[in-house]
């Protein structure tokens, strides 16, 4: 048994979805500090809805979300913005004429006063993040001038500037080619390890996700779900059942899908 105090996120009997359509009910799982958790499911299975619900961007139907053992309802939105940051799918609804610098400056909002005066400390954090993610050459570019991979890195930089212990990423690698995909996954792993972040990401990239995730939440189409450590899920044969098909099979050793020929 885990002791209760190391769970940074606890989900109890959570039901998510919309007023007329419940996607999942009775979700229960705990995420520990510094965990990398992959939410895996097919398109339309409710990954984004779950992320939005835990980030308090969408109303939940029922149940309880505890962040640092405190009910998410008891957080003021200012307070929560210093604990949870999020990278939305694609480019979100970000004004495409914004420059990278402008986005990173806005991302310091939780720490600035109402006139948004950036202090030395704020500028240092922005500079440091730009350095770490090698964004120097893009700083004055507008978002629409960036490739999808570059834009994704900028939004990850946004979460770093926001300095939150928990980071959610919704489909961070969709629309990316394999080289960029690997780079983003590597970056996620690095952030969890070096910056002690708890990272939850949604993906339908099963094979790559399994290589970096400590735990996985599998979301099925019919409201079924499984949550466990990645190694246990692999050895228990869940993947074979969860993604059963006549056309392919899951190979436990290589953690990959093989085509049935």
């Amino acid at each position: 048994m885990y002791s209760e105090n190391i769970h940074i996120i606890s989900i109890n009997n959570l039901s998510i979805g919309y007023r007329n359509r419940v996607l999942f009910s009775n979700l229960n799982f705990n995420i520990s500090e510094k965990d990398i958790v992959a939410i895996i499911g097919l398109n339309g299975s409710g990954k984004s809805t779950l992320i939005r619900t835990i980030c308090k961007l969408q109303k939940r139907i029922e149940g309880e979300i505890l962040i640092k053992q405190k009910n998410i309802n008891d957080y003021h939105s200012d307070e929560l913005s210093k604990i949870i940051s999020v990278v939305l799918a694609g480019r979100g609804e970000v004004l495409q004429a914004l420059t990278v610098q402008e986005i990173l400056q806005i991302a310091r909002s939780p720490y600035t006063g109402f006139m948004h005066r950036l202090q030395n400390e704020d500028n240092e954090i922005i500079e440091q993040t730009i350095e770490e993610l090698q964004l120097k050459e893009f700083v004055n570019k507008k978002i629409y001038q960036l490739s999808d991979g570059e834009a994704q890195k900028v939004f990850i930089a946004k979460t770093l500037v926001q300095q939150t212990p928990i980071v959610f990423l919704d489909e961070p690698t969709s629309h990316l080619d394999i080289i960029n995909k690997i780079e983003i996954f590597k970056l996620i792993k690095q952030l969890a390890k070096e910056k002690n972040k708890t990272i939850v990401f949604a993906s339908h990239e099963l094979e790559l996700s399994l290589q970096i995730a400590d735990k996985c939440l599998l979301l099925g189409k019919g409201g079924e779900f499984v949550f466990d450590t990645t190694s246990k899920l692999i050895s228990s044969g869940v993947f074979e059942n969860f993604f059963a098909s006549e056309n392919y099979m899951f190979n436990k050793e290589s953690k990959k899908f093989d085509i049935k020929l």
């Binding site: 913005s81 939305l88 609804e93 970000v94 909002s109 939780p110 926001q162």
Partner: peptide, 8 residues
């Protein structure tokens, strides 16, 4: 709106 919300 979503990012704005997540920034408080």
């Amino acid at each position: 709106e979503k990012y704005a919300q997540s920034l408080g």
